[in-house]
Computed example of a mutant assay.
Amino acid sequence: MDKFEKAISLIDNYNAEDPNTIVDEGKIYPVELLYSERMSQKLLEFRPDASDELQIAARAQHICRWKYPRDSYPMDRKGYLQWREDLKKMHADLTAEILKEAYYEDKFIKRVSFLIKKKLIKKDEESQTLEDVICLVFLQFYFEEFAEKHEDEKVISIIRKTWQKMSAEGHNAALKLPLSERAGKLVKRALA
């Protein structure tokens, strides 16, 4: 097993510990393991020539996320933003430990941490690519369930915020996703 395969395997081992499960195509998965596999798949569809750093950052995007539940922070905007920052730091730090165990050099590890922390979106091409992939995975796999739990106006607001984070290339890919009739209508309303 080479360094890259070892790093992916270690990330998957951590995410396989997620006590929360989801059924996909009749198979039960730990939630974050399935999410990480979807991130890798979508990244390679969107950017087949993605660097190893970007592939690892995508795979580790939500590593051990369940250990920091949203409801353990105040349920206001300040609490939400603090939760997001703490998650990014935890994801980056844990991934750095994994990459050291896989014998990666410091320069490589720093780049992966930079990407996981989503630094310089709109200015750094790989950071932007990671953000696009995050948005595409959300829209394709998680948007329907999210939309069912919220009023249309909130959903439309989230779509608009998501759209602002994406590149033109990301927009084009999003418009080609297989969405349900309701989801498609909400996207059209958000973009009108």
Rank of each mutant, 00 (worst) to 15 (best):
Y80F: 15
R47F: 07
E144L: 14
L81N: 15
K118M: 02
A147Q: 11
Q128R: 03
A174L: 13
R65H: 12
A92G: 10
L44I: 05
P19R: 00
R59V: 01
R38M: 05
W66F: 13
S127P: 13
M39F: 07
E45H: 00
R47S: 12
E153D: 15
K27H: 07
V23G: 02
A147K: 06
V187M: 13
L87G: 03
V31W: 01
V112D: 02
R182I: 12
G79L: 12
S40L: 01
Q164W: 08
L54R: 00
A58S: 11
K6N: 13
N172M: 03
R59D: 00
I63N: 07
E45P: 04
I8G: 09
K88L: 06
E53L: 01
I116A: 06
F138N: 10
L186I: 12
W83I: 09
K119T: 03
D12R: 08
S51N: 03
I158R: 09
N13E: 11
V23H: 02
T95F: 10
Y80E: 15
V187E: 12
C135I: 08
D124N: 09
A7E: 04
Y35I: 04
K107P: 04
K3D: 00
S167P: 12
T21C: 03
L175R: 13
F143Q: 11
A16S: 13
L43D: 03
L81D: 15
Q55K: 03
I156V: 15
D71K: 14
V155W: 11
W163K: 04
S113N: 04
K89S: 06
K27D: 02
L81I: 15
E5W: 05
P48Q: 06
V112K: 02
I158P: 08
Y29H: 05
N15L: 01
L175K: 12
Y29I: 09
L33P: 01
V31F: 04
E148R: 12
R111G: 05
